[in-house]
Design a protein around this nucleic acid. Structure first.
Lengths: 362, 362
DNA sequence: CTGTTAGCGCTTTCAG
DNA sequence: CTGAAAGCGCTAACAG
């Protein structure tokens, strides 16, 4: 991680200046000198303690700052103050539109509360995630929001314990007692199955990525089974695993799915696929299109949790998560922890919203 | 932007510790004391100057670090060294898959070169962009990669001038002489029109967002017109503007487009739409589907620059940009500048790749 | 091979 | 109202 020695320090292109502009950014001392005062007053000015400065001094400071195009160095401030207003946001997969939307909520909240988000993208690599978490520690972020891949609780701060304050998004982390915000998975799945059943689909396959390690997937899968049981055997439910990280496994799994669909079709059952999230839905749709042709929608119904922008185009029924709010709330939770709130771990579960489209109106 | 006074400093939940863990992260002094040596040796150890430490001292240091779970503070290092290994990445719109892909290239390069990307998302808000640029300055990033919305050159560093080193992505900034990396727009558009003409489409509408302020759009539009002229009047070309930031304008524009399509259909011309980028393509596809029904593809051809994941699902022909490489190269350029390279502004234009799908095989 | 001594740019007592 | 001085955690001469 360290840059290592050996860099030719002699090189210095920055010296080639056009003319007036200072080679080095002005420091607080420069401003103090320019304004003919001490650093303290500058600092006071920067921190908004205006009432305490004489109008004259204040004017001189303003002028000096302007003239030197001075910008306080956050790093130095952070070092002295012990807080740098940096929040880490660790995302498992930015290719998932869910993450991008949550990110937007996080950004909005950060602005409102005066934080700067340090966004880290693990790209589904558990090793990346580990490195980023370490990096965040190193940059002394005041807290982290984690959409975990495989983080161990050891690096995070359990409520009331040591480490760095964390709030979890979408997924819990084994053994970590922290604030959590996400979807009300059980309710969302029930919403979906109820819709499917009401539309007369009596053979439902729930397709989900390997769920043992990921709480949200686990909860969705459990809710699905429970939901089907509650239907009193009126419909047949089946869980199907699709490991998107392993293309070979995906092929095998899709073949099995095809077989199931064929069997169902032969027996005259109306069949629906319930994708546990957007990436799964996309993979399914692509496959169905390839396997059944452009009019695959007439052969099998598809519903999904998450509402990516292409869902409308493809006409797929979805259960939309209030993603922005999830991100926003996560920051709020974290902020409270950072400010020292000593309450027990909280959890916010938002409701999903059913968006009915053509795919389930067959 | 400043936190302002008035925060109740008395509150301090962090004091409520479970037991052993230290309330405060260990500092280099703690480690030195624990290892029974001076800070210098610790620093040397941290910076990989291992050959210069006796095996014994080294072992003691390692043990101490381990015991205290010590992590060097990057902020302090940066303050002292004058470089904090932070790079700013200013993105106009993360909802555009293009940005996410470029981002991945940037991340990869950052890892390889030892930087930490500070990702800022302007969300198409020019004011946000300005604030972020200021913030990045304040955090003393060593350089910025900018996918500009409306940045003025005043904040950035023209090659050889003052300010912060910048490299531009996809779009140039008026009056800023900086490194630039993006798509070979002219070639990409030619690729598209050639394909369309060869498939017998003789009425082509190029749909683009307002292009006066954005160099890539401008170049694409110009290339389109030139391309049509070069076809020697064999086909009719028309530029159509779609301002996605203004829903009312979009409606009007789409209505006009519908009229054009109807006219073309009446005259028996085979008509194609050429979307200048993915967001435009999505909007067009959604509209066509709503206006012409699920089988809109049989009525009008669609081709687009950019290759979002839904393109395959919708069967839309695209011109794919090597997005990862663009991001990677941008970091490399920036790195060279940071290291002091004093060459003239460079520009890297990557070739697009035509991905033919059903939409243009009608 | 190792430690001492100055700061990096800023905030914060503590005296004027 | 204002400024001098002492660090925050770390690195980099400069002596041993």
């Amino acid at each position: 991680m360290s840059a290592g020695p050996g860099r030719p320090d002699g090189v210095d292109g920055a010296e080639k200046r056009a003319g007036a502009a200072p080679a080095r950014r002005a420091t607080i001392s420069d401003v103090a000198r320019e304004a003919g005062t001490g650093k303290t007053s500058i600092s006071r000015y920067l921190n908004g303690e205006l009432g305490v400065l004489s109008p004259d001094l204040r004017a001189r400071i303003e002028a000096a700052i302007e003239r030197l195009d001075y910008r306080p160095n956050q790093m130095a401030r952070g070092l002295k103050r012990g807080r740098n207003r940096l929040l880490g946001l660790l995302l498992a997969d930015l290719a998932n539109p869910y993450s991008v939307e949550v990110l937007q909520g996080v950004e909005a909240a950060c602005h409102a509360l005066g934080y700067m988000p340090l966004i880290c993208h693990a790209a589904n690599e558990i090793e990346m995630e580990r490195r980023y978490l370490q990096l965040l520690t190193t940059y002394r972020v005041e807290g982290v929001i984690v959409n975990a891949l495989g983080v161990r609780e050891s690096m995070l701060k359990p409520v009331g314990g040591g480490g760095i304050p964390a709030v979890l998004i979408d997924r819990t982390v084994d053994g970590l007692d922290a604030d959590m915000v996400g979807l009300d998975n059980a309710a969302a799945v029930h919403l979906g199955t109820k819709h499917l059943l009401s539309r007369g689909y009596h053979d439902i396959v729930f397709v989900v990525q390997p769920f043992a390690q990921v709480s949200s997937r686990r909860e969705r899968e459990a809710a699905f089974r429970e939901s089907m049981q509650a239907s009193g055997g009126a419909a047949r439910g089946l869980t199907h695993v699709l490991d998107l990280q392993d293309e070979a496994a995906v092929q095998i799994s899709l073949a099995a799915l095809d077989a199931h669909l064929a069997r169902a079709a032969a027996s005259g059952a109306r069949c629906a696929l319930f994708a546990a999230n957007a990436p799964v839905a996309l993979r399914l749709a692509l496959h169905l299109k390839a396997a059944l042709g452009a009019h695959w929608q007439q052969r099998v119904a598809l519903i999904a949790i998450d509402d990516p922008d292409w869902a409308e185009l493809a006409g797929i029924t979805t259960i939309r998560q209030p993603t922005r709010e999830i991100g926003y709330r996560a920051v709020e939770f974290l902020h409270e922890r950072i400010e020292g709130a000593a309450l027990a771990a909280r959890s916010a579960a938002f409701e999903g919203e059913l968006v009915v489209r053509a795919s389930t109106l067959g």
